[in-house]
Design a binder for these strands. Structure first.
Lengths: 349, 349
DNA sequence: ATTGCTATTGTTATCGATACCATAAATTCT
DNA sequence: AGAATTTATGGTATCGATAACAATAGCAAT
C-alpha cells in the first residue's frame, strides 16, 4: 500500500503553508499562478488525495444519508435504494445502505451506528409497523432526535417524521373492480397481513370494495402469511384445501409480486389454468412481472419517485426546519394478462 | 435536532478529564467504581454517543470496506452484497455499497471517492473486463495502490489483486452434456458475449464440449447480446428468424437467468412448447428460477461463499501482506424442469 | 519616500476522540 | 513509619484538514 501522504507533506515539499495547499485544492482565487502550479505539481507527483475523514470532523458534516430497508435482495427495495443513491449523488450527498431484516431485532444497533457516524438523515423503508414491533418505534424515536427521518409508511401518529406512502386503498379498490368487471365474484386476498401497516390499506380497500359491489366477504378468503414466494405457495395451498371446489375463488389479490409468483406456481401445480381458472393480481410491479406466464397484472407504487422525494426532503430538512408532513401518491394498476384482460385494457379511474 | 454533546461536555459535567470518559466508554479496568458510575450517569443523561468520525481520524482506520458492483437491482449482485455485508459485520467491519453501472464511465470518480474516504479494502464485482473497458483497469490499478482489492473475475495478468471466480468452463460443459444426454443435438448460446470476461469461459466450455461430443458448431447458434431479459427476447427472435424451422436448435444455454427469462417469454410467444420443443438453461440460480414455467435449470455460482471469502481476505490482507492469488470455485448445475429432466435428475460429474 | 491599499501567504485554533506520559492517591511491603 | 508499588486520574500532543485572523509583500498614489 502507498504510504499515506498528508497535507503537511505537500506543504513542506512545495515550501508553502498548509493553508495555501487548501487554497489550491479548493480553487481559491487569491493564489499566485506560480505558486499554484508549484503546489499542483507536488500534489500530482504524490497523487495526494485529501482525507474526507479529517474534513468531515472539521466541517461537522459528512453529507451522508442512511437508507434503511429490510433487504436489498428484494428488487423492490433495491429499486428504492438505487433511486435514492442516484438522487443523493446528484445533490452532492452519498448514501449508506443498512439492512434491517424484519425478523431480527437489530434496530437498536443500527440506530446506534447511524448516530455514531453522525449521518445527516435517514430514509427508512420498513416492512412492518407499529404494533408488530414496539422496539422499532422506540429506536426510530431516538433516531429522530439526531437527524431528520423520511419513511415509506402510512401516516404515523406517534412518530414525528415525513411519511411517504401510496393510496393503496383506492388502488386495491380499482383492482377489485377490475376483477369484477371481468366477471369475477369470488375474490380472495393472500399473503402479508390485513391488519398491519401497508397491508392494512390493502385490506381496507379490499373489504370496502367487496362491500360496495355486494360481493361476499368470506373470512375463508383471507389468507395472510409471509411476504415471499414460498408463503404464496403455502397460502394457496391452505386457501384451496380448506374449501370444496365449488366454493373456490376465481381470482386472487396477492400482497406482493413475490407472493403472486409463488401462488401461480402452486396453482399450476394443482392443475389450474391461468388466467382462465384463476385470475391473479400482484403488487410492486417488479421487473419480472412481464415475464411470468401469464404476465402478471400488478400495482406500481412508484418507488423511484418516493425515493427521490425522500432524499430531497432530507436534504432540505437540514437547512430549513421543515414541519413533518405526509405525502400520498397514487398507485397505478398495471394491467397485463394474468386476469385475462388483454394488454391495453382501459385503466379504471 | 439534539444539540451535539461531545466528550468535553461529559468530562466537565462529571468533573473528570476526557481521558477518564474514554476509559469508561471502553471499559478500561482501572477506573474507580464510584467514578465510573458518576460518568456513566452523565453519559446516560445526555444520551452521549461518541463520534466515530473523530475516532477514525485519530485511529487512522475506519473499518469500512467498499463493495463495488454494477447494480443492486440485479438479485445476483444483491446477494453478493448481502453476504459481504453480513460477513463484514461479523468481523467488526462495515460495508459501503458503490454502484458502477457497466455503461457509465464513472470508475474514476468512484475510485477517487474510495481513496478520499480512506476505505480499507475493495470488493470489486465487475461486469465487463479488460479489453472492453481500459479506463476501468487503470482506475483499479490506481485503487490497488491504496487498498487491497478482491475481485470476482477470471485471473488477471495485468492487475495485482485476489481473483475469485467459478469454473464455468467445466460447468457449461456439464450443461452441454446434460442436454446431450437428454437427446439434444442442436444447442445454441444466447446473450452476453462469448469473448469477454466471464462469458469467455462460458463460450470456451460451450465450444469445447460441442467439439468433444461431435456436435455442429454453427456460428448461427451463437447470439450474443446484453445481460437482461429484454436482450434474451431479442436474441431468441434474431436466432430463430435467421434459420428455417428445420434447423432450429432444440436447446438454449443463456448467459444468465435474466436472459433465459426473456428467452422463455419470446419462445412461448412464438408458440413453442417448453421444455418439449425447446430446452433452456440459465445461469446464477436466482430466486425466481423455481418459479418460472417450467422451473429453470441453472448454474449456481455460489455468490455467498465468494463474498465471504472476499471480505475475509480483505480483512486479513490488511494485517499480513498477502501475495495475490486466484481462487476457482466449482459452479453447480441445478437441474429443474426446463430441459425436460425430472427433478432429482442425477447431476453429471 | 511615505502612506494606503490589495494581493498573497503564513499562523494557529479547531473539530472530537484517543493514547501516551506524568502525576497524584491509595495500598502493600519491609 | 517510610519506601515501593499499584491504582486512578489528569494533561496534552496527535490524527488531517479547514478557516479565521494575522502578517507580509507588492504596487500605486501622493
Amino acid at each position: 500500500m502507498e504510504k499515506k501522504v498528508t497535507i503537511y507533506d505537500i506543504a513542506k515539499e512545495a515550501k508553502v503553508s498548509t493553508a495555501t495547499v487548501t487554497r489550491v485544492m479548493s480553487a481559491h482565487p487569491s493564489v499566485r499562478p506560480a505558486t499554484r502550479e508549484r503546489v499542483q505539481a507536488v500534489i500530482a507527483r504524490h497523487n495526494y488525495t485529501p482525507s474526507s475523514i479529517a474534513r468531515e470532523l472539521e466541517r461537522g458534516q459528512n453529507k451522508t444519508i442512511a437508507v434503511i430497508l429490510p433487504e436489498v435482495i428484494n428488487p423492490y427495495f433495491a429499486q428504492l435504494f438505487s433511486a435514492a443513491d442516484d438522487e443523493a449523488r446528484k445533490n452532492g450527498y452519498a448514501v449508506w445502505l443498512y439492512q434491517l431484516p424484519s425478523n431480527e431485532a437489530v434496530e437498536d444497533s443500527v440506530v446506534e451506528d447511524l448516530i455514531r457516524r453522525r449521518l445527516e438523515g435517514a430514509f427508512f423503508v420498513g416492512g412492518i409497523w407499529e404494533a408488530a414491533r414496539p422496539g422499532l418505534m422506540d429506536a426510530l424515536k431516538r433516531l429522530g432526535q439526531y437527524m431528520p427521518i423520511v419513511a415509506i409508511c402510512p401516516p404515523m401518529t406517534n412518530l414525528s417524521c415525513i411519511c411517504l406512502y401510496n393510496d393503496l386503498v383506492t388502488c386495491v379498490q380499482h383492482a377489485v373492480r377490475h376483477l369484477h368487471v371481468l366477471g369475477h365474484r369470488r375474490i380472495a386476498f393472500i399473503g402479508g397481513s390485513l391488519q398491519v401497516g401497508g397491508s392494512g390499506a390493502r385490506g381496507q380497500g379490499f373489504l370496502a370494495e367487496l362491500r360496495a359491489l355486494g360481493l361476499p366477504d368470506d373470512p375463508a378468503y383471507h389468507h395472510e402469511g409471509g411476504f415471499d414466494a414460498e408463503s404464496g405457495e403455502r397460502a394457496v395451498q391452505r386457501l384451496l384445501s380448506g374449501l370444496e371446489r365449488g366454493r373456490w375463488p376465481t381470482a386472487l389479490i396477492a400482497f406482493n409480486d413475490l407472493v403472486a409468483l409463488g401462488a401461480m406456481k402452486q396453482l399450476k401445480q394443482m392443475g389450474l389454468k391461468l388466467p382462465d381458472e384463476m385470475a391473479i393480481i400482484g403488487c410492486d410491479n417488479q421487473f419480472f412481472c412481464p415475464y411470468t406466464d401469464p404476465p402478471l397484472t400488478s400495482m406500481d407504487l412508484h418507488p423511484d419517485e418516493h425515493a427521490r422525494s425522500a432524499i430531497r426532503e432530507l436534504i432540505s430538512a437540514k437547512e430549513n426546519d421543515t414541519t413533518p408532513f405526509t405525502l400520498m401518491r397514487d398507485a397505478t394498476l398495471v394491467v397485463r394478462e394474468s386476469c385475462g384482460a388483454k394488454l391495453g385494457y382501459r385503466k379504471l379511474g
